[in-house]
């Protein structure tokens, strides 16, 4: 009985391979893929891209497991500073997981385990003794759906600095005369201006942030992130819940931010990646980084057949 089973399994595996629905990976594992994706071997040189300039984030051989699920497989890439790096790929390919590894937000998911190393300015963020508060101050994050706190616009923006003790506005500070309302005001104005929201909300800073429109809320979240003065901004599909006009505002903002910050943006929209990013990393099914190169090269002349199929919309 067990002999037949084994024989059958072997046979199935064989058919699957020939039917081109699995990728024969270098480590010999068979992984089924999205229908329509052709089988091919990922070559290391496709991802060994050097963008030039200083490397802000160096990722080396990063593996992520969610329980038994191998979500990210041996990803290595260097993210250059003061530029926009887009991460694209079909649903479930691990691009959001990868993004959440860059400021250790995956620590908040109990089932997730991360192997490999990520270095911010040469310092490993997964080594012992890393201060998560300091890390997340330097590597900020903007989420897929706008998530302002149910507080006033002003309090939303100044939330990070207040909680870090950089600005004192509490009752005690006011009583003892150590409050710095002017500094808070200046910070709020600067951050909102940087996020292209100041003109729309300058006359109602004390209104609840939940009364803003979706696009305004998302820019408020960006302003809130900028107020902490990060070096890297991670954005997880920041425009996917927004209408076209709000989306284009966010896209303009991303390009603008890249002059001072290192921006890493996950997106579902290939047009968005093509418009805003300097370099693009393509993740495909199974949680592997298939190709990483100049955005132009990825969209016009990719090395990988699968990437070409993906960016030309044949699957995904």
């Amino acid at each position: 009985m067990s002999q037949t089973d084994t024989a059958e399994t072997a046979e199935t595996a064989e058919t699957a391979e020939t039917a081109a629905t699995t990728v024969n990976r270098t480590d010999g594992q068979d992984v089924s893929t999205t229908a329509g994706e052709t089988a091919e071997e990922t070559r290391p040189e496709w991802t060994s891209y050097d963008a030039g300039g200083e490397t802000k984030l160096a990722v080396d051989d990063l593996d992520v497991h969610y329980g038994d699920d191998h979500a990210l497989k041996g990803v290595s890439m260097d993210i250059p500073e003061e530029s926009v790096t887009a991460l694209i790929g079909p649903s479930g390919c691990g691009k959001s997981t990868f993004l959440r590894c860059l400021n250790r937000m995956n620590d908040r998911i109990r089932a997730a385990s991360v192997d490999g190393s990520v270095a911010l300015d040469g310092e490993g963020i997964y080594q012992d003794g890393v201060d998560l508060v300091e890390l997340r101050k330097r590597v900020g994050m903007v989420f897929q759906s706008p998530n302002p706190f149910p507080k006033s616009i002003r309090e939303n923006v100044s939330y990070g600095p207040r909680k870090h003790g950089d600005i004192e506005t509490g009752l005690l500070a006011r009583l003892t005369g150590r409050a710095e309302p002017d500094r808070e005001e200046a910070l709020v104005e600067r951050s909102l201006e940087r996020a292209a929201l100041w003109e729309e909300v300058s006359d109602r800073l004390d209104d609840n942030a939940l009364g803003l429109s979706g696009g305004q809320q998302q820019r408020l979240c960006i302003a809130r992130c900028l107020a902490v003065d990060p070096e890297v901004i991670l954005m997880d599909e920041p425009a996917s819940a927004l209408d076209p006009i709000a989306t284009s505002k966010i896209e303009d903002l991303i390009e603008d931010l890249a002059r001072d910050y290192t921006v890493v943006v996950v997106t579902h929209s290939m047009q968005q990646a093509a418009r805003v990013s300097d370099q693009t990393a393509v993740f495909l099914t199974g949680g592997e980084l298939v190709e990483y190169d100049d955005t132009e090269k990825i969209f016009e002349n990719p090395e990988s057949q699968r990437v070409e199929d993906y960016v030309s919309g044949k699957f995904g």
């Binding site: 300091e134 997340r136 900020g140 994050m141 909680k163 992130c225």
Partner: peptide, 21 residues
């Protein structure tokens, strides 16, 4: 909503501060 906790954590705010504020 967990989004509030995520947003606060992503700003580098500690767990107790997040709960309190």
């Amino acid at each position: 909503p967990d989004e509030y906790r995520d947003a606060s954590a992503a700003l580098g705010v500690s767990k107790w501060q997040t709960i309190r504020s």
